[in-house]
Nucleic acid binder design. Structure first.
Length: 511
RNA sequence: GAGAAUAUAGCUCAGUUGGUUAGAGCAUCUGCCUUUUAAGCAGAGGGUCGAAGGUUCGAGUCCUUCUAUUCUCACCA
């Protein structure tokens, strides 16, 4: 501390880092006033006996049920010697009626110092006001936490049964940067995230009830694999080695199938060093599931059932609205091979075509292609451009070219293809699955082909993972694998149209 | 990475072809009000107009650069 600072006694004890407007200054002063009056602005606990929702749900006229609730003050209407306020807890809001003659003059004077945003505890009884709102008639109340920053006030009004919100806190940047404020002020945000948790919990119980094992595998990986993507790189100091944040956990889960588990799954944070938009966040959640002795046909049925049940679980129906379209998730979903889908939407036949022929087809369709990309990628480009955006209702696209799918097993009857499907909903990929390749010799060939693509300039092609190949050489049973993007699935089931609205703290550049 | 839009009070927004001291509603403060609910009535305070340069007698407004966000495209299982 410098001499200058020492000599200047800080009268208000306001942290320098906090920039103050008049409202904050006032609240800092109020905090001091309360403390000076012997009231701890941050006491230790409060005995809550019920919630706002429970009071409203169980209200019986004239019963004067004793309650103790706590929550954040969201509205205040002072009318001289009595006041109304709404407090908000985790379940919703309830109105509190505070009368000087009831709580005492001292307590009422303290109340008059409080602000919207403060957290209070109230003891009293439930009753219905003259205008009909079930409320708590306070007999005691106390401050539980003083709020020093003014929260954005959104006022609500019922007009013809419709709720109209005035001055809603709507600045997207502020909402994402200060999600805590967003959650306080915008109740539907809380609802979306509760649904997210319920969706994950439902999937977890669905998998567990089949006897499969939830596992954890490394996030820091010496060799990244299991998907085509650029990784984040980091460094381990003690070992002095490069490590990668996983782009997928596929290869580790398959090692566990080799190890003898019949079914394993992991809800995994994956990291991909790519662009950010409303469908991509650099870190995102994916569940991967591997089940021994099953194939991709079996997995399609599982996906249909899982998605439909998850939708019913959170929405009460099998339908949802996604990107402006009504989506019906009632099984069965349409199944279409990728070649048939391209024929349906472009009229072009890609089956059995050479790389040059495919390039010409793409050219005829008006696609400009990077000359480096090979036939699998060309098909993927055609599909992504002309087919995928048009698949609104859930559709399984199946039987991809071998080259696009180095970890999938070759098709049992179609040469050059693999047993793989993606589920497309609303024009977006929701999940990806295959009959897993378990022939170690073929797997080595495929990975070596990937290495060649990599040399040719495809920096998303996979790397040869010798330990993974060694595991396969010990023998992996036939196996079906599945990856579901949780963030997109939550978007689908909640109707949110940006990934930022289903991730609490989406990635933003620093302020 | 490219283009477009946006950035004004705590929140939501006005602000004309550049022209006195930058406005409104809510929030805040003071006073009144013991069943209100977008409570009400009377008064008051609150702004480095995203940042930095420039043009001009004069810039919230025009120009340049920068920053962030949003949207579109590119990238992207």
């Amino acid at each position: 501390m410098t001499k200058e600072q020492e000599q200047k006694p800080s009268q208000q004890e306001i942290p320098q880092a906090v920039s103050l407007n008049d409202q904050m200054k006032r609240r800092f002063e109020e905090r001091e006033h309360l403390a000076a009056a012997g009231i701890n602005p941050y006491p230790y606990s409060f005995d809550v006996t019920t919630t706002s929702k429970a009071i409203l749900d169980s209200f019986v006229e004239e019963s004067r049920e004793e309650v103790a609730v706590a929550g954040r003050i969201m509205t205040i209407r002072k009318m001289g010697k009595a006041s109304f306020l709404h407090i908000q807890d985790s379940e919703g809001r309830i109105q509190v009626y505070l009368k000087r003659d009831e709580v005492g003059e001292q307590a009422y004077d303290t109340f008059k110092l409080l602000d919207i945003g403060d957290i209070v505890g109230v003891k009293g009884f439930s009753f219905r006001t003259r205008t009909g709102e079930v409320s708590v008639h306070a007999q005691q109340f106390e401050l539980l936490s003083k709020s020093l920053r003014p929260i954005p006030i959104a006022k609500e009004k019922e007009v013809d049964g419709q709720k109209v919100v005035y001055d809603a806190f709507s600045d997207r940047e502020l909402r994402y940067r200060q999600r805590y404020v967003d959650l306080i002020v915008n109740p539907e945000v809380r609802g979306t995230f509760i649904k997210r948790t319920r969706i994950v919990a439902f999937m977890r119980s669905y998998f567990a009830s089949n006897g499969w094992l939830e596992v954890e595998t490394p996030i820091l990986q010496p060799i990244y694999g299991g998907a085509a993507a650029r990784p984040f790189t980091t460094h381990h100091n003690a070992l002095d080695m490069e490590l990668y944040l996983r782009i997928a956990n596929e290869l580790y889960l398959k090692r566990l199938i080799v190890g003898g588990f019949d079914g394993v799954y992991e809800f995994a944070k994956d990291f991909r060093n790519e662009g950010i938009d409303r469908f991509h966040n650099p870190e995102f959640t994916q569940v991967e599931l591997y089940v021994a002795y099953k194939d991709y046909v079996w997995m399609m049925e599982l996906v249909e059932d899982l998605l439909h049940q998850a939708c019913v679980e959170v929405n009460g129906t099998g339908t949802t609205t996604f990107l402006g379209n009504e989506i019906n998730l009632t099984p069965p979903f349409r199944r279409l091979t990728i070649a048939d889908s391209i024929r349906e939407f472009t009229g072009m036949e890609i089956r059995g075509k050479s790389e040059t022929e495919l390039r010409n087809i793409a050219k005829d369709l008006g696609l400009e292609l990077d000359p480096k990309i090979s036939s699998g990628k060309i098909i993927d480009e055609i599909f992504g451009e002309f087919v995928e955006p048009k698949l609104i209702q859930p559709t399984f696209i199946t039987d991809y070219p071998e080259e696009m799918s180095p970890l999938a097993k070759k098709h049992r009857s179609e040469p050059g293809l693999v047993e793989r499907f993606e589920l497309i909903v609303g024009g977006k990929e929701v999940c990806n699955s295959f009959s897993e390749l378990n022939d170690p010799v073929v797997q080595r060939e495929r990975l070596e082909e990937q290495a060649r693509l990599r040399q040719r300039g495809d920096d998303e092609a996979m790397v040869v993972d010798e330990d993974f190949l060694r595991a396969l050489e010990y023998g992996m049973p036939p196996c079906a694998g599945l990856g579901i993007g949780i963030d997109r699935m939550v978007m689908l089931l909640t109707g949110e149209d940006s990934i930022r609205d289903v991730i609490f703290f989406p990635h933003l550049k620093p302020e």
